[in-house]
């Protein structure tokens, strides 16, 4: 106990009814976002639509999921109430994900394109050895 007191300089006030109403508000937000996402997912299935519009809806769903993540981490996990130092040590390393996602999805797409345009006949005939006679020693 003595040790723990030194680790926490400023204690959070326990909070009363306003905390519960914040939790309820966040629950409603999360549920509504999920229902919107489901509506879009089902819309892509049920309605005929152009590939571009589908891609756009998928992008919107991704952004809505990030909003859900923000509410879960910020309100339910109380990260928003922590000291800025702590928030930064958690959030800044996660920025690496931006690069990971961009690099790997680009890689996957390039892999598909290479496979689709690969021509085995061309690949076999291309490397013709120029000095075959000189190979014997």
């Amino acid at each position: 106990m003595e040790h723990a007191v030194q680790e926490i300089t400023f204690h959070h006030e326990p909070g009363g009814k306003e905390v519960v109403s914040k939790i309820i508000r966040t629950t409603v937000i999360l549920s509504v976002i999920t229902i919107i996402e489901l509506g879009m997912g089902l819309g892509m299935y049920a309605l005929p639509m152009a590939a571009g519009l589908k891609l756009f809806l998928k992008g919107v769903i991704v952004i809505l999921s990030l909003a859900k993540a923000f509410y879960i981490v910020g309100v339910f996990m109380h990260l928003g109430e922590e000291v800025k130092n702590l928030i930064m040590t958690i959030v800044v390393p996660l920025l690496l994900f931006i690069w990971f996602i961009a690099a790997f999805l680009y890689e996957g797409n390039s892999w598909k394109n290479l496979r689709n345009t690969y021509n085995p006949k061309q690949a076999v005939s291309a490397p013709a050895a120029p000095h075959e006679a000189g190979e014997h020693h």
């Binding site: 999805l105 797409n109 892999w111």
Partner: peptide, 17 residues
Amino acid sequence: ISYGTIRFSQNYWPDPN
């Protein structure tokens, strides 16, 4: 991300619906 990479590398992927 590994799942996403493989999915991007395929010409066909199943529709979850």
